[in-house]
Write a protein that binds this DNA or RNA. Structure first.
Lengths: 322, 322
DNA sequence: CTGTTAGCGCTTTCAG
DNA sequence: CTGAAAGCGCTAACAG
């Protein structure tokens, strides 16, 4: 049965010193003599006593909590982002709260509110695809809670943002296609509302040779990408494909394989480097490394928290084509 | 610039009532007259005031925090579990903390300690595959923090556990294979240390006809499963495969397809129902629904938290073969 | 129905 | 170097 947990006071009266001494000793405050410090720390260790960090944080007006607010834990990328974040944050003794908006603006508004109410020290936010402005983040500013946008973002001069350099990366893919010399390409983008879809599309088209004929579509899932790719192959014998995500690449590669064209087709796109390159060894891809994005995002929010301000930097993580 | 946040006291002195009245009004305490209650709530709404839940929780000796401790956010299943958990918890105003152990026992021990120190209200734990006993959870018991095991677990009469009925599910797969009538099957299990690997293996073999010849292996990833399956096809023209996870099924299906045997081969196993059934339409699978597992786990920990005890129930979620 | 008071467990001035 | 005392913002007896 649970016993009433020990407090600093208990320890103090047992050691016949004052609570403040115990507190200081436990925090390695230099004021405390080595002797007392050791005596305190030793007993604490023996009794497995750890001061209630909840109370300490309350007193210090901090929560040591960073909230990660995101639409959905997609099957690729996002899990790695979360790992990157938790790892970086835990190194600084911050804990990671996860709130999911299911791509509903209303849920996002509510989540941000809750974060503010519970006084998290900082917020990492990937916008829902219903979100078109950043009004609901005003509250964070007035409460002085730093916030950093990542992955799906909107341009803002109030908040920092982190993503890979989507446009440049898509440009690299276009360069490869240019080199390859085919006169036709089919490109599959993700959901139209996503900022990454738009940025990658822009970068792709800005680098692609103007005399290459291109068919493109927005696809929500592998199935849709499959249908589009299948159709393109049947109609135009397309041999070059660009796909914006693992999801759509799966559809494309499946279509290509069904037509037995794997060897003679170039498929290039964005991937987390797991399933897709395994499935299609010839795949050329921009490695979209969630862990790096997560680490940078964590780094940035930690910086903001430490300084108590929002830096409105827009960090673009450079990428490579594999 | 951030202003010093308002407090209940501020609101009280403004309204010329006592802080406790404000507190009670905000919490819809029946003692407070409707008139006062409305006046308070209205002003609070106008000023966007929300009491500091951190302080309230501290006072009430609760954190409204449930920690989810797990080895790794695998690419399938676990993201759904997390979604299921957060969704269920947020309905009861609990927040979800995510701690990742990277399958290191040391990290797990540390994570549990941290959870205890920060007085989370409950813990959901999926064991690292280095964990062989539950000693390090003693602290939770003495501190009265309820804990529920899920996914990768060890049998324990101290803590509840949640998973799908792995043995029965694997048995269903074996039944299907029996019916199919082939005299040979290749079975791929996951990492040997995992409880799910063992449970599924047991269930599989206990139902499988004894006169079926079976080759089996433990595979860590798709690559390993691929090599094994490829080898079996070459050596024995195996036409029936069992795979314990999406990861190994990917390897198996790839090998089968490379040999152009998709139509004549039976592949059966455990899947989250996303990538694999798309990749191989003929796949027969146990739908391993993370959301359901997450929801049940959340439900269970909420129950424990409410009653302040650990129920040592072992819940097995029934599954179907698709 | 409302106010007064005490105190959650810790940190941190301020004295000594 | 150590102790006393105040107080973070809120809630909950206990009075009235």
């Amino acid at each position: 049965m649970p016993v009433k947990p020990m407090t600093i006071k208990d320890l103090a009266s047992f050691l016949k010193v004052s609570p403040s001494t115990v507190s200081r000793a436990l925090n390695n405050h230099p004021d405390i003599s080595l002797e007392v410090r050791q005596r305190v720390q030793q007993l604490a260790a023996e009794l497995q006593f750890k001061p209630n960090s909840f109370a300490a944080n309350f007193r210090k007006k901090q929560s040591k909590l960073i909230a990660v607010v995101l639409p959905k834990i997609y099957r690729s990328f996002i899990p790695d982002v979360i790992e990157g974040i938790t790892k970086r944050l835990s190194a600084d003794q911050f804990q990671t709260l996860v709130l999911i908006t299911e791509d509903q603006l209303a849920n996002e508004v509510e989540a941000i509110k809750q974060c503010c109410d519970m006084r998290v020290d900082g917020i990492l936010l990937s916008l829902s695809n219903q979100t078109t402005d950043l009004q609901h983040l005003e509250r964070c500013k007035t409460m002085g809670i730093p916030l950093v946008l990542f992955d799906n973002t909107l341009q803002s001069d109030a908040f920092a943002s982190i993503h890979i350099n989507d446009a440049a990366a898509a440009g690299l893919c276009a360069d490869l296609i240019n080199q390859q010399g085919s006169s036709r390409v089919a490109a599959v983008f993700g959901p139209e509302e996503l900022s990454i879809s738009q940025n990658r599309k822009l970068g792709f088209f800005s680098n692609l040779n103007k005399d290459i004929e291109v068919a493109s579509c927005y696809a929500k899932d592998a199935q849709a990408a499959f249908r589009f790719a299948d159709d393109q192959i049947k109609k135009h014998q397309t041999k070059v494909f660009f796909g914006i995500s693992d999801e759509v690449l799966l559809g494309i590669v499946t279509a290509v394989k069904e037509h037995n064209l794997a060897k003679e087709t170039l498929v290039v796109g964005f991937s987390d480097g797991l399933t897709m390159p395994f499935l299609h060894r010839e795949l050329r891809y921009i490695f979209h490394d969630g862990k790096v994005v997560g680490t940078h995002a964590a780094e940035q929010i930690l910086k903001s928290v430490a300084h108590g301000v929002n830096f409105n930097e827009h960090i673009e993580i450079p990428v490579e084509l594999y």
